[in-house]
C-alpha cells in the first residue's frame, strides 16, 4: 500500500517485556497529511505502539523511523528535542491541574519559544478560540472544565508548537455521544486546518463508528499484530473475521 510521503515507518518491530511479547513483527507505514487510526481491542498493544512512536519506549527488535529518523539512534537530549515534532492529546487530556486553561496552552510556548509576551498571548488566545474555548473558559482550572472542554484545551496545547504529527490516545473515551462527535469533528477540522503544512494524525481508538467516519486509513491490531491495514472506505469490506466481528459489534 502506498499513498504519499511516509511519515512513520515500522520495520519488523517487536516489543517484549521479559518473555512477554506485546507487539510482534510490525511492518506498516503512516502517511503524511492523512488521519490513520490504530484500532483494536483492549490489551492489543495500542498504547505500547504509541509509546514506541514517541520514543518513550524502544523496540526490542526492528526499527521505527519517524520523519526519516530512526528513534533508537537518537541520544537522550536529541530525542527530547525530536519529540517536539509531536503533539499529543491524552485520553483524559492530562492538563496540568495547577494551571488554568490559558496557562496550560501557554506552557509549551513559554518553554520552547522566544515569543514576546504579547505575541505569546495572541497565539494562546488564537489556539484556544480555534477550539471553542472562550475568555471565561480560559481562566478556569482543569477541574472546573467539562470532559469535552478539557479535551479541547488539550488539543490547543498539543497544537501550540505546530507539530508535524498529532497523536490522539482514545480521544472519545468517557465522553457522551454529543461531546464525542464534537471531539471527532475537531480532529477532522484540525487535520484540515493544518493540511497546508502537512499535519499527520494518528489516532489510537476502539471506537469503530467514529474511526470509520474520520479516518483515511485504519490498522487493526490484534494481540500485538497488525492483522489488517486498509483505507477506511475498504475497511468494512475486509474479509478478516476479527475485523468483521469488530465492525459488527
Amino acid at each position: 500500500m502506498s499513498d504519499g510521503e511516509v511519515v512513520i515507518q515500522f520495520e519488523g518491530v517487536t516489543k517484549k517485556f521479559g518473555e512477554h511479547v506485546i507487539l510482534s513483527n510490525l511492518n506498516f507505514e503512516i502517511y503524511k497529511n492523512k488521519i490513520t487510526t490504530i484500532l483494536g481491542f483492549s490489551g492489543a498493544g495500542k498504547s505500547t505502539l504509541l509509546k514506541l512512536i514517541l520514543g518513550l519506549s524502544l523496540p526490542s527488535e526492528g526499527t521505527i523511523k519517524v520523519l526519516g529518523q530512526d528513534l533508537a539512534h537518537l541520544e537522550n537530549l536529541a530525542l527530547r528535542e525530536f519529540r517536539r515534532n509531536f503533539g499529543m492529546v491524552f485520553q483524559y487530556a492530562a492538563l496540568f491541574d495547577a494551571m488554568t486553561a490559558y496557562k496550560n496552552v501557554e506552557f509549551p510556548l513559554k518553554e520552547f519559544t522566544e515569543l514576546r509576551p504579547s505575541e505569546r498571548d495572541h497565539k494562546v488566545r488564537h489556539l484556544l478560540t480555534s477550539v471553542g474555548i472562550d475568555e471565561f473558559g480560559m481562566r478556569k482550572l482543569p477541574s472546573e472544565l467539562s470532559g469535552g472542554m478539557r479535551k479541547r484545551v488539550g488539543l490547543a496545547r498539543a497544537l501550540a508548537l505546530s507539530p508535524a504529527i498529532m497523536l490522539y490516545d482514545e480521544p472519545t473515551t468517557g465522553l457522551d455521544p454529543i461531546t464525542s462527535k464534537m471531539v471527532n469533528d475537531l480532529i477532522v477540522d484540525t487535520a484540515e486546518a493544518h493540511k497546508d503544512r502537512g499535519l499527520t494524525s494518528v489516532i489510537i481508538s476502539h471506537d469503530i463508528k467514529a474511526t470509520l467516519k474520520i479516518s483515511d486509513f485504519i490498522a487493526f491490531l490484534d494481540r500485538g499484530r497488525i492483522v489488517e491495514y486498509l483505507p477506511a472506505k475498504d475497511f468494512v469490506n475486509s474479509d478478516h473475521p476479527l475485523v468483521q466481528e469488530f465492525v459488527h459489534l
Partner: peptide
C-alpha cells in the same frame, strides 16, 4: 504521584521536558 497517575508527567515527557 497525582501528576503521574493523571498522565501529566507523560505530557511533560511528550513535550520534550525532562
Amino acid at each position: 504521584g497525582t501528576m503521574k497517575v493523571t498522565e501529566q508527567i507523560d505530557a511533560l515527557e511528550v513535550m520534550g521536558i525532562n
